[in-house]
């Protein structure tokens, strides 16, 4: 994302420091994550210190300060999936790809996230990878599914 586009988004919010969260959200929607260079630009334009931006960007889980992997794995750990054994699935996937929820592996292959209800409670435990839903997952099946991704 170039500086012109960042400036455009900031101008839309009249360069108000109080719009920081909106600005960051909008940038992230287009750029998928928030690299340091972008935060520096935002800091300069909005006159908000980098320390303050860091505070806000790390406070809310919605912001992503590392790039996303090629494949995004969402594992549901909502009540239904949880009682159907989602934790076992999460543990297995964690061990398999070597990262914890919220992280991206060093090859940028996977990003792992957990969430609290994908709306498919009757089919739990549910995993969603790139918009495709895999239902009634056992830990072993989850392993097989994930191994198919390159």
């Amino acid at each position: 994302m170039d500086n012109d586009r960042i400036d455009q988004i900031i101008d839309k919010h009249q360069g108000e420091a109080s719009s920081l969260i909106q600005v960051l959200l909008e940038i992230q929607r287009e750029n998928s994550w928030l690299p340091k260079e972008i935060l520096e630009r935002v800091s300069e334009k909005l006159q908000v210190s980098l320390a303050q931006i860091q505070h806000t960007a790390t406070f809310y889980k919605a912001f992503r300060l590392v790039p996303k992997g090629r494949h995004e794995i969402h594992i549901c750990n909502g009540t239904s999936c949880h009682v159907r054994g989602a934790q076992g699935v999460i543990d297995t996937v964690q061990d398999l790809i070597g990262i914890r929820p919220g992280q991206t592996d060093l090859d940028s292959k996977f990003t792992l996230e957990t969430c609290n209800c994908l709306g498919r409670c009757a089919l739990g435990p549910v995993i969603e990878i790139e918009g495709k839903t895999h239902s009634k997952m056992s830990p072993a099946e989850a392993k097989d599914v994930i191994k198919k991704y390159e």
Binding site: S49, L50, A51, Q52, Q54, H55, T58, F59, Y60
Partner: peptide, 23 residues
């Protein structure tokens, strides 16, 4: 931030994981 106007140090994260961090 207030006296030196540098903001070289700030808080990051929230809840039990909140900590200070230098820029």
């Amino acid at each position: 931030a207030e006296v030196k106007k540098k903001s070289a140090v700030g808080f990051i994260n929230s809840g039990v994981r909140r900590e200070i961090s230098f820029v």
